[in-house]
């Protein structure tokens, strides 16, 4: 059903994370105030991106990436205007002008530019079109989203958001027990590695920040990135009494043994069934 909303409310990081984890195939269409962007995914990997305002022909992208000269660009535009990207790519490779890596690398840079730019959008209506993919004659790539997510979340610097996500620095971190996540396949910044190396249920986020000489915003940014990439989860530190314990908690009037507790729950179940 509906996977649509506004970036103001549901960030691009969260969207990419969702697409990644659900291994979605389709196209994310985002309409901002000044332009419209299409980003296509195949099984949760970035396949293609297009900014409606830019010339996204292969020739233009290769020229922008300094893989072809402006003269070559002009000639291609004149003589190969009707050629599809795939045909042009093959032609250039066969003529030994450029390599396949040049093409894929240039496309990747271009697509990443489109995606990364989205992280600066405060708002934009988005919708995800299941199974919609770019035209067949376009060259696509297969780029995992994890690094894009981490990179992108570095850009999101709003402390307020970070405070919503991480209400307290007195919590600890632990590695998420999600199979398929392999931390060695994720590129972490030096700062992120420092934090990762201290992850332990005994260390609060605040303590990790202190040893690494990071301020609140810096540590929140790092933890946020790790959370969004699904690498860690927040837990209560294992050694410190929780605030709940610090506040005197009265024992319920009757603190029955386990059998009595079970019978209590069963009474509740019977009662609610009859409501």
């Amino acid at each position: 059903m509906a996977l649509k909303g506004n970036l103001r409310d549901f960030s691009i990081t969260q969207l990419l994370n969702l697409i990644n984890l659900a291994r979605k195939t389709g196209t994310l269409v985002i309409e901002g105030q000044t332009s419209k962007v299409w980003i296509s995914f195949r099984e949760g990997r970035l396949a293609y991106a297009q900014d409606g305002q830019q010339d996204n022909s292969l020739a233009a992208i290769l020229f922008q990436a300094n893989k072809i000269s402006s003269a070559q660009h002009r000639v291609i535009k004149q003589r190969a205007a009707t050629m599809s990207d795939k045909e042009l790519g093959l032609l250039l490779i066969n003529a030994s002008y450029i390599t396949q890596q040049d093409i894929l690398g240039s496309l990747q840079t271009y697509f990443l530019g489109v995606v990364n730019n989205l992280f600066t959008w405060g708002e934009g209506l988005f919708r995800f079109e299941n199974n919609l993919l770019p035209p067949d004659d376009k060259i696509t790539i297969r780029l995992p989203l994890e690094n894009i997510i981490i990179e992108g979340s570095r850009r999101m610097q709003e402390l307020e958001q970070l405070q919503d996500e991480i209400p307290s620095l007195d919590m600890a971190l632990r590695f998420a027990e999600r199979p398929g996540t392999n931390i060695r396949n994720v590129n972490l910044s030096a700062q992120e590695w420092k934090v990762v190396s201290y992850i332990n249920p005994k260390n609060t986020i605040r303590q990790i920040a202190r040893v690494n000489k990071m301020n609140d915003l810096e540590i929140r940014r790092v933890v946020y990135g790790l959370l969004q990439a699904g690498l860690v989860e927040i837990i209560r530190p294992s050694w410190t009494p929780s605030p709940a314990v610090q506040i005197p908690v009265k024992i319920p009037p009757v603190k029955p043994n386990r059998e009595e507790q079970k019978s209590l729950i069963n009474r509740l179940i019977d009662r609610i069934r009859k409501l």
Binding site: G5, N6, R8, D9, F10, Q14, Q161, D164, E165, I166, P167, S168, M171, I234, I235, R236, S242, P243, A244
Partner: peptide, 20 residues
């Protein structure tokens, strides 16, 4: 129907879970 509240919900869950 309001994805804009999911982040807050997650924060609330995290707090409750840690305390209770």
């Amino acid at each position: 129907s309001r994805p804009e509240t999911f982040r807050e919900a997650r924060g609330i869950l995290e707090t409750f879970r840690a305390y209770a």
